[in-house]
Design a protein around this nucleic acid. Structure first.
Lengths: 243, 243
DNA sequence: GAGGGATTTGACCAAATGGTCAAGATGCAA
DNA sequence: TTGCATCTTGACCATTTGGTCAAATCCCTC
């Protein structure tokens, strides 16, 4: 599979990618489950792989280093995952679900201001807690999404369409200013993920990043205010006074 | 220089990085200038390198491929640039100047709405015309900015501080809502660059990207409106009616 | 505690890749 | 044209790296 030269996925969908994760190393254990050792080692590997892939990208990461980080030999790692690409896919699948989860919670029956604020809060929380996941995802997409393009085109597209409709409905109901829902979603993604992906730059310029709780709160407030105002909304402040 | 393992820059500043670009391959030509052949080949190499580095990242790009894209042998390329790292640095320096230029045009004496709108327009224009530059920059920063961290900490920090002051002054003059200028700048960077860096995802979801003139216009309008409203401003619409 | 599958590893291999070098080709000034 | 510096390249080298394999060790069941 000619990865380096620009390999393109063969039509696999989210379910299949996810399945990679749960599948045993090589059809072991008569029962379908994973042994305790397998469970532990796979988890160690995925954690180490996330660190390496997010920091160096696919090409820059080495199997040897991932193995060392996971506390085992390269050979042993390749006993659990058949190739570097398999580790990468498993890592990607592992984070994708949790990464896209917040958008799913956008509730059509809620109030736009509350719902959008909650979404932004969750996304910033994700950027603060899982910056590596954000960078891995960014890396994958920037390289042309060779692995997850089909997922973007199907599952994510469906999700975005669904939530765009929610926003359209809010607009139609006169609950918020008329904006293109897709651009609104892109803006929220861009701003919130920026604080994870560019944390080094942010730290170079401000001296802080999202690992600082105060900075996280400040960021959340700034981004939330800006975007809510941007779509003609505002959040009731804590002491009950409109801003 | 142990790049792969996380090489960190030795305190070079923008001027030095820039100098790399203009310096001759190996102290040729009695006069300081570059020969016509040198000029042409360096330019071809930098163009090819931008394409490769932005698409594959530093590790993923190969000298051989860059040379092929530039229409010459690997050996010849290494006659003009002493190492892969040197090509990378030259490429980075080459784009950095133009990439940061728009912010410098923010005029303290202008009106906030006009000035910010113009800045956003320029940034989106950059993302549309030079998406590779955006991706190269994003890649570099995401990997920890090993080459340009000193520039971020000095030149860029100074520039951001200066322009933050401009925004503070606008706020103090009652010309716009009180916002944290740094977060505003980050938001503008994040949103505008997102359309370049994540163009594959955007195309997967919308069917278009900034290479489509109509989509570019639509994006510019959406982002400008959202951010200006976000800071309590609005642009007089073309037909003279307030929106 | 014996047997057998599961786990682990070091030795090894082939391909890719950054870089060197000497030799040849080309352009240019006198 | 001649001579010299510039330019170009193929052959070659050392290292890195993804992946294989057979042998050992561990773990669990009977």
């Amino acid at each position: 599979m000619n990865w380096e030269q620009g390999w393109y996925p063969s039509g696999q969908k989210a379910e299949q990618l996810m399945a990679d994760l749960g599948g045993q190393a090589q059809a072991s254990l008569k029962s379908g489950g994973l042994s305790r050792i397998q469970e532990k080692n796979r988890s160690l590997i995925l954690e180490a792989a996330l660190g390496e892939f997010s920091m160096k990208g696919f090409s820059g990461a080495t199997v040897e280093r991932i193995a060392a980080d996971a506390g085992m030999s390269k050979s042993n790692l390749l006993y659990y995952f058949s190739s570097k690409e398999a580790i990468y896919n498993a890592t990607l699948a592992h984070i994708l679900e949790v990464w896209l989860a917040p958008l799913k919670t956008l509730n059509p029956d809620g109030e736009p201001a509350q719902e959008l604020a909650a979404y932004i809060r969750q996304k910033i929380e994700m950027s603060a807690r899982f910056p590596e996941a954000s960078r891995l995802f960014a890396n994958e997409v920037m390289q042309g999404a060779p692995q997850i393009l089909p997922i973007l085109q199907t599952d994510l597209k469906r999700l975005v369409a669904e939530k765009s409709q929610v926003i359209e409905d809010w607009i139609a109901a006169g609950k918020m200013r008329s904006v293109d829902p897709v651009h609104l979603i892109f803006t929220i993604w861009a701003t919130t993920q920026h604080y994870a992906d560019f944390s080094v730059q942010i730290k170079a310029l401000t001296g802080k990043d999202l690992s600082d709780a105060a900075f996280q709160a400040e960021t959340e407030a700034a981004v939330t205010t800006l975007i809510l105002n941007g779509v003609g909304l505002s959040l009731p402040s804590e002491d009950g006074l409109a801003e």
